[in-house]
Lab assay of single mutants.
Amino acid sequence: MDALKSAGRALIRSPSLAKQSWGGGGRHRKLPENWTDTRETLLEGMLFSLKYLGMTLVEQPKGEELSAAAIKRIVATAKASGKKLQKVTLKVSPRGIILTDNLTNQLIENVSIYRISYCTADKMHDKVFAYIAQSQHNQSLECHAFLCTKRKMAQAVTLTVAQAFKVAFEFWQVSKEEKEKRDKASQEGGDVLGARQDCTPPLKSLVATGNLLDLEETAKAPLSTVSANTTNMDEVPRPQALSGSSVVWELDDGLDEAFSRLAQSRTNPQVLDTGLTAQDMHYAQCLSPVDWDKPDSSGTEQDDLFSF
């Protein structure tokens, strides 16, 4: 819950932080000083300027060897085509990944977070970031790969997607708890209302004896509580940590079903599988986004697919 609360507080303090972009060759504004600060901008989305290598189908939802083989196929196909790589912007948030063309600003792909089953910074092609997700059109699994400016960037994108998945799962947990509370309150309110109706004398007997209905007592009954809980029953509950912020979080049926399955089948359902080692994760978390744009010590960066 700490990640969720800190993310909400950060967004309320400075929503404009989320509009910064990394990996864009110096076009961005001043960047936060450390990885923790940038992680807090996830709610509205972190932007990464990358190059799209392509996509291939895979048979399993996750796995280092599986993704490595898929990336190898994608890279080989991209090299064989001889075409310049498409420059894209990857927007990562707890909602998922939005992929747009840098030149036309046209939407290429919009992947809900619950469809993503794996992401990684490839070991062999260490400047490549990739994720595996279920197609929104059918049940097939797709591996999408992107060329980053350097290994640090690939690791940073991988960690960002993993963190977005974690925050999304926490949102789901909060929403589920809130819905259970509202359902319980609604049920209790309905029981109270039913009890009051059972003990209320029939209207005919009131008229016969000349008694008047006590409207004041009726007004004191917990009807307002019942209506408050039943009027918006169809509205999706939102985490309290975000009250007053500009973010509107809505959970669709697909996300609810997917996270429910994860909660039942996995020990740590909030953790998205990645190909990063503990050492890689520690190294990337210690980086400032400013470091992502620094040239690798191995030599001059080449803006070309064939540089790796």
Rank of each mutant, 00 (worst) to 15 (best):
N110P: 03
Q264C: 02
R13T: 13
K84G: 13
T104G: 10
D273K: 03
A168Q: 03
I12F: 15
L251T: 09
E170R: 04
D214C: 07
L53N: 01
N105R: 07
S135Q: 06
Q279D: 11
R238E: 04
D304N: 08
Q155I: 13
D234N: 05
K123Q: 08
A195E: 10
R39P: 09
L251S: 08
H144G: 00
A241G: 12
A68P: 02
S298N: 15
L276N: 05
Q163W: 10
D296G: 09
N138T: 15
T89N: 06
I71C: 04
L103V: 12
A258W: 05
K62D: 05
I132N: 02
K84I: 05
L103D: 07
F169S: 02
A241N: 06
R151G: 02
K166C: 14
I74T: 03
A121F: 01
K294H: 07
A130F: 00
A78E: 01
W249R: 08
D252W: 03
R73I: 10
D2C: 01
E250T: 14
G26R: 12
S205A: 11
L17G: 09
G23H: 10
L11G: 15
T100V: 05
I132H: 01
S21F: 07
R196F: 02
T120V: 03
D2A: 05
F171V: 15
E142M: 09
T36A: 04
K184V: 11
G189E: 07
C148M: 01
D198K: 06
N102E: 08
K83R: 10
L276S: 02
T120D: 03
A195K: 06
R13H: 12
L107I: 05
A145N: 00
K152H: 03
E64M: 14
T277A: 14
A78K: 00
L262M: 03
R196M: 10
L50T: 06
I116V: 05
L276E: 12
S227H: 09
K150R: 12
T36L: 14
F171I: 08
T149D: 05
T267Q: 09
T200E: 09
D183I: 10
S227A: 12
D183T: 11
G96V: 12
T274Q: 02
S245F: 11
Q139E: 12
F48Q: 00
L159N: 11
T231M: 04
P269Q: 01
S205F: 02
L215P: 08
K62L: 02
N268S: 11
N138D: 15
L57H: 06
A164N: 07
D291Q: 05
S297D: 05
L99P: 07
S67K: 01
L103F: 12
H125R: 00
P94G: 02
D37R: 08
N268K: 05
K294C: 10
A69G: 14
I12G: 15
K152A: 10
L147F: 00
T277F: 10
T274H: 12
T158N: 03
G26N: 08
G82T: 01
M124C: 05
C143F: 14
H125E: 00
L4Q: 03
E235I: 04
L159D: 04
D280T: 08
K30L: 11
E301R: 08
K152M: 12
K204Y: 05
L66G: 04
I71S: 00
R266T: 05
F165N: 03
L11E: 06
A208D: 13
P269W: 04
G210N: 06
R182K: 13
Y118G: 02
S117V: 15
V75L: 11
N211V: 04
G210F: 03
G275Y: 03
S21N: 15
E59Q: 15
T300Q: 10
I71T: 06
E257I: 06
M55H: 07
S307V: 08
S298T: 05
S227L: 05
I12L: 15
S21R: 15
A219W: 02
C143K: 01
Q136P: 13
K123F: 05
F169T: 02
Y131W: 03
N105M: 13
S205N: 08
V192P: 07
L276K: 09
V226P: 08
Q279E: 12
T158R: 03
G8W: 00
D122M: 00
W249K: 10
E109I: 08
T200N: 07
L17D: 12
D234R: 03
E188R: 15
G82P: 01
D273N: 07
I132C: 01
K87C: 15
L107Q: 07
K5T: 04
V207S: 09
K179Y: 07
D291S: 11
A10W: 01
V207Q: 09
D273V: 04
A162M: 06
A221H: 02
T160L: 15
F171Y: 15
L212S: 11
E64F: 11
E257C: 06
G24T: 03
E64R: 10
L85A: 00
A156D: 07
L50F: 03
T160H: 15
N268G: 02
T158V: 13
T274E: 06
E216W: 02
T158H: 02
R9A: 12
S140C: 10
S14N: 10
E109P: 01
Y114T: 02
L47M: 07
S288C: 12
L103A: 05
L4P: 03
L147D: 03
I108M: 02
T77Q: 09
I98C: 14
A228C: 10
S205E: 09
S16Q: 07
F169Q: 02
P94T: 08
L305A: 07
S112C: 15
N110Q: 14
A7H: 15
Q197P: 13
A3Q: 10
E188Y: 02
Y283C: 14
F259M: 02
S16L: 13
S14T: 10
S265T: 02
S245R: 10
K184L: 14
D234W: 02
P15H: 15
L206E: 12
F48K: 00
H125P: 00
D214T: 11
K5E: 01
K179C: 12
R9D: 14
R9V: 07
I108W: 03
D37C: 11
